[in-house]
């Protein structure tokens, strides 16, 4: 798996010859692409397995009886019933047997959540849509606002203001932004519904909450990318040819910066999913974030393992896509091989 952070990637490229060999193979002829994809798939499965195993060990180490979790705090249930539940869920088996049972069921999709009493796959499938809507709209907001920020920052007078604003956004806790938006636009102005209902209006504040910290980040990186691009020789050449500023920005620099921003995607998706946990809590929304918090707090081992495997898969796929896209958008990567 390639590094998800551009930093490590860059450092690795400079230093580690083993690593840089694999990086440059991006630009190898398309015939090797299938082989590479297969290799990646193998790596992805390996990562999923590793993450799931680590998760199993970690959660087994937690004190607390899963049966208590299933029953809830005020349940008046005798010991023989508890034993019955343990047998039913295979919790009386030795840990190694449990591990293989859980892994097997995870692969075949038969694993049931302790808390929700449903197959974990069903839960994930049901809860994925609200989270996808939230993160999708948040991404749209973030990119849109970042573009506005970049355009504003091109005016020298506004640059310090934009920069300060970005810093404030990056530095604020997501959940606090959510609470402030809720207080102002939900309770005071009543522009948006405060209840976690379906529909677009209810999605605006949560998505905005999730988008704002990202906006700061995307706009910073984008701006730096543009600055970097425009200090390159090709920009000078282009300017010397008499190309207009707007044209330089739209035809060259942005494209250049887009490549840099794309490598950030892994990080962005991570922020979105991590942020979704808090945003879904603040706005009492449904979704994978809310499911994750509940699964972790409730010691819902099957659910947590499924979510870990899902996260590992999502990140592996995103990294793969980013590598491919960067190679297509940014000509330098293609030439570099």
């Amino acid at each position: 798996m390639p590094p998800s952070s551009p930093d490590g990637g860059r450092a690795a490229k400079r230093v580690d010859t083993r690593r840089s060999a694999s990086q440059t193979s991006l630009s190898a002829p398309p015939t090797s692409l299938v082989a590479r994809a297969l290799g990646r798939l193998g790596g992805m499965l390996l990562v999923m397995w590793g993450a799931t195993t680590a998760g199993f060990i970690a959660l087994r180490a937690i004190p607390g009886d899963p049966v208590d979790v299933m029953l809830g705090v005020t349940a008046s249930v005798g010991e023989s019933v508890r034993q019955q539940i343990r047998v039913e869920w295979g919790l009386d088996e030795p840990p190694v047997v449990q591990y293989f049972t859980v892994l097997g069921r995870l692969v075949t999709g038969e694993l049931d959540s302790y808390q929700l009493r449903q197959p974990v796959m069903t839960v994930i499938a049901d809860q994925a849509m609200p989270t996808l809507q939230l993160t999708g709209l948040a991404l749209v907001f973030a990119l849109g606002l970042a573009t506005v920020g970049i355009l504003l920052a091109r005016l020298p007078a506004l640059r310090p203001m934009v920069s300060t604003f970005e810093l404030a956004l990056v530095s604020s806790p997501t959940f606090w932004i959510g609470l402030v938006l809720l207080a102002v636009f939900g309770y005071q102005l009543r522009w948006f519904p405060t209840a976690a209902s379906a529909g677009l209006p209810a999605l605006v504040l949560p998505a905005l909450t999730l988008a704002l910290p990202l906006t700061g980040i995307v706009s910073q990186v984008f701006r730096q990318g543009i600055g970097h691009a425009e200090s390159q020789p090709f920009a000078l050449t282009a300017r010397a040819r008499g190309i207009s500023d707007v044209r330089l920005l739209s035809r060259h620099s942005l494209r250049h910066a887009a490549g840099e921003t794309l490598t950030l995607s892994g990080y962005l998706v991570g922020s979105l999913l991590g942020g979704a946990v808090l945003v879904e809590t603040v706005f009492a929304r449904q979704g994978l974030g809310a499911v994750t918090v509940r699964a972790i707090l409730g010691r819902d081992l099957p659910m947590v393992l499924a979510l870990i495997a899902l996260a590992a898969a999502v990140f592996a796929v995103i990294n793969l896509l980013v590598d491919l896209l960067v190679a297509r958008i940014d000509p330098r990567v293609r030439m570099a091989g």
């Binding site: 709209l137 749209v140 907001f141 990119l143 849109g144 573009t147 739209s250 942005l254 494209r255 887009a258």
Partner: peptide, 13 residues
């Protein structure tokens, strides 16, 4: 949101 998305996308070449 949709118009914003379009605008940001149309910035690309």
């Amino acid at each position: 949101p949709t118009t914003r998305a379009e605008r940001s996308q149309s910035q690309l070449p």
